[in-house]
C-alpha cells in the first residue's frame, strides 16, 4: 500500500490554486475553461518528474508562500524567476529536487514573471470537479470549493515506489519571461472596422495594468479605435482563449484561462496559445509588444511543444485533455 503525504500550506501571501490543463467540454454551459495560466511552464513541471502531462500541480501567483512536505518525494518548481529555499538550501527553477519529510519550501516574490508551478512525482491527488482539478476562483468552481488555498490547507500526494531520477531543463529551453514580441494571430477575415486598431496594436508598447488576473490582462497604451459601428447591435458571442477585446475606451483586454465564456465587445485579434501563456507571466507595469505570426506557425509551434512533452515517459497527451 502506498503511503500518503501532505503538502501543508504554512503561509500563503501570494495566491495558491491547484491547476491542470483545464475543463474541456463545459463552455457551452457558460463554465469557463480554467487551467494553468502558463501552460508551457506547467508542462515542464510534469515533464521533469516523468508525470502524465496533465497531472495536477500547484499554481503559485507572486510567490510568498511557505509549504511543508510531510513525506519524502521528488518535486520541481518551474515558471517565474523566483528565489526559493528548501529549508536553508536554494532551489533552482527547472531543476527537480529531493524532499524529506518535514522539509519546508519557501518562495519570495519572483524577480521576473508572475506564476510558478510546484509539482511532485506522480502529481498531487486532487478530486476533479467537472473533469478538472483546476480551481476557478471567479466562478467558485473546482476542488477546495473553488477557493484559493490558505494557511492550514493541505494537498495530498502519494509516496513514490521509487524515486524518479533528478532532471533539469537544458539551458536552451529557458523560458522567455519578457513581454517583448508576444505572438499574435491576425484574423484571416479582417474586418474593415478593426484595421486601424490592428495597426496600432502591432506598433506600440503597452503596459500591463494592475487590474490583471487569471481572467484577463488589461493593457494600457494609446487608445485603439474601432469604428463606432462595431459597437452597435453587436450580439454577445463566444470568447476564445487569448482573445484581444476592445471596449469603447480603446484599452485592449486580453482574455486568459478564467475568462467568461461570452462577451459583447469586438475581438480585434487573438494571441497564440503560447503567446497567451507568456502574457500571463507579465507583471503589472511591465512593457508588452506584439508580433504577428501566421496560424500555420502557431499550430506548428503547438505541435512541436506537445510532441516534445508527449515523448517523455508520461502518457502521450494524445487527446488534448
Amino acid at each position: 500500500m502506498s503511503r500518503f503525504g501532505l503538502l501543508r500550506v504554512l503561509q500563503a501571501r501570494g495566491k495558491l490554486t491547484t491547476q491542470d490543463l483545464g475543463r474541456k467540454g463545459w463552455l457551452h454551459l457558460g463554465l469557463c475553461e480554467s487551467g494553468a495560466a502558463d501552460e508551457l511552464a506547467f508542462l515542464w513541471a510534469n515533464h521533469l518528474l516523468g508525470n502524465a502531462c496533465d497531472a495536477p500541480a500547484l499554481e503559485i501567483t507572486l510567490g510568498q508562500v511557505s509549504l511543508e512536505f510531510t513525506l519524502a518525494t521528488t518535486a520541481v518548481l518551474t515558471g517565474a524567476e523566483v528565489a526559493g529555499q528548501l529549508n536553508d538550501a536554494p532551489v533552482t527553477s527547472g531543476q527537480s529536487f529531493r524532499v524529506a519529510a518535514g522539509d519546508v519550501l519557501r518562495l519570495s516574490i519572483p524577480r521576473q514573471g508572475v506564476v510558478n508551478y510546484l509539482s511532485v512525482q506522480g502529481g498531487f491527488c486532487i478530486t476533479k470537479v467537472c473533469g478538472s482539478a483546476s480551481i476557478c476562483e471567479r466562478e467558485k468552481i473546482g476542488p477546495f470549493d473553488g477557493a484559493p488555498l490558505n494557511a492550514g490547507d493541505c494537498v495530498g500526494y502519494r509516496a513514490p515506489a521509487e524515486h524518479t531520477p533528478l532532471r533539469r531543463r537544458a539551458e536552451r529551453w529557458c523560458m522567455n519571461h519578457s513581454g517583448e514580441n508576444i505572438p499574435l494571430l491576425v484574423p484571416i477575415v479582417e474586418s474593415v472596422a478593426a484595421a486601424p486598431a490592428l495597426h496600432n496594436l502591432l506598433n506600440q508598447r503597452f503596459r500591463v495594468s494592475t487590474e490583471t488576473n487569471r481572467m484577463g490582462c488589461r493593457l494600457q497604451g494609446d487608445a485603439l479605435n474601432v469604428d463606432a459601428l462595431a459597437y452597435q447591435h453587436r450580439a454577445s458571442a463566444g470568447v476564445p482563449y487569448g482573445a484581444i477585446q476592445l471596449p469603447p475606451d480603446g484599452q485592449p483586454i486580453v482574455l486568459l484561462k478564467d475568462r467568461q465564456t461570452m462577451g459583447g465587445y469586438p475581438i480585434i485579434a487573438c494571441l497564440s496559445r503560447w503567446g497567451a501563456g507568456r502574457l500571463a507571466q507579465c507583471r503589472p507595469g511591465e512593457a508588452v509588444t506584439f508580433c504577428a505570426i501566421s496560424i500555420a506557425q502557431a499550430r506548428q509551434q503547438w505541435r512541436d511543444w506537445y510532441g516534445f512533452f508527449s515523448n517523455s515517459a508520461s502518457a502521450r497527451c494524445a487527446k488534448y485533455h
Partner: peptide
C-alpha cells in the same frame, strides 16, 4: 472539444 452557440454565431 467545445462549442459555444450564441445569438448569431457559433464558436
Amino acid at each position: 472539444l467545445d462549442g459555444i452557440p450564441a445569438y448569431d454565431s457559433l464558436m
